[in-house]
């Protein structure tokens, strides 16, 4: 029951963010909605008990790929939106608020660590990896070996194509 509620809630979120990705007017907003979309998918993985996939989803998609998207948007969309120039003080209040929040946070961290000098350094034991990493690895190299290898071939072909198109014409 609880799981169903979680799933449908998340599914609604994922769909909503997906719609926002394609309806948002600025490309940067699209990308940000895409991040939220990926994060919601990661939560679905957690609900399903696939923690490893969730971590990978966040690291690779929300982390790596979206950053690349942002770079592309940044490099391609070089003209700024006009209103940003009209009023440089438009978001001053928000800026001060965020800046003071960060300042407070940093101060808190400094004060906290300074007040507890006896705290031992974080133990360097190997972290307990969520249950199914081993299973995923095992499946990848047994049942899905061919699929795994073909995926790498796919990436190689895609790389050749990408380099071909991106290379400077000589």
């Amino acid at each position: 029951m609880l799981e169903a509620i979680a799933f449908y809630g998340l599914a609604a979120l994922i769909l909503g963010f997906g719609v926002m990705v394609i309806t948002a007017r600025s490309a940067v907003h699209s990308v940000v909605f895409l991040v939220l979309n990926f994060l919601a998918v990661a939560v679905v993985y957690v609900v399903l008990g696939a923690e490893f996939l969730a971590v990978i989803q966040v690291l690779v998609y929300a982390g790596g790929i979206v950053v690349l998207y942002l770079f592309v948007v940044m490099l391609v969309n070089q003209k700024r939106t006009p209103e940003a120039h009209h009023d440089p003080h438009r978001k001053t209040g928000l800026g001060i608020m965020l800046a003071s929040a960060v300042l407070a946070e940093v101060t808190a961290i400094v004060v906290y660590t300074a007040s507890a000098p006896s705290a031992s350094p974080i133990p360097v034991s190997s972290p307990v990896v969520g249950g199914n990493t081993e299973q995923v690895g095992w499946l990848l190299y047994t049942d899905y070996l061919i699929a795994f290898e073909v995926a790498s071939m796919l990436l190689l072909a895609a790389m050749v194509g990408a380099i071909l198109f991106a290379r400077r014409m000589d």
Binding site: A147, V150, A158, L164
Partner: peptide, 12 residues
């Protein structure tokens, strides 16, 4: 996956 390998190559 095989379909994608051949498609990507042919797109390029």
């Amino acid at each position: 996956l095989a379909l994608e390998v051949l498609s990507l190559a042919v797109y390029v």
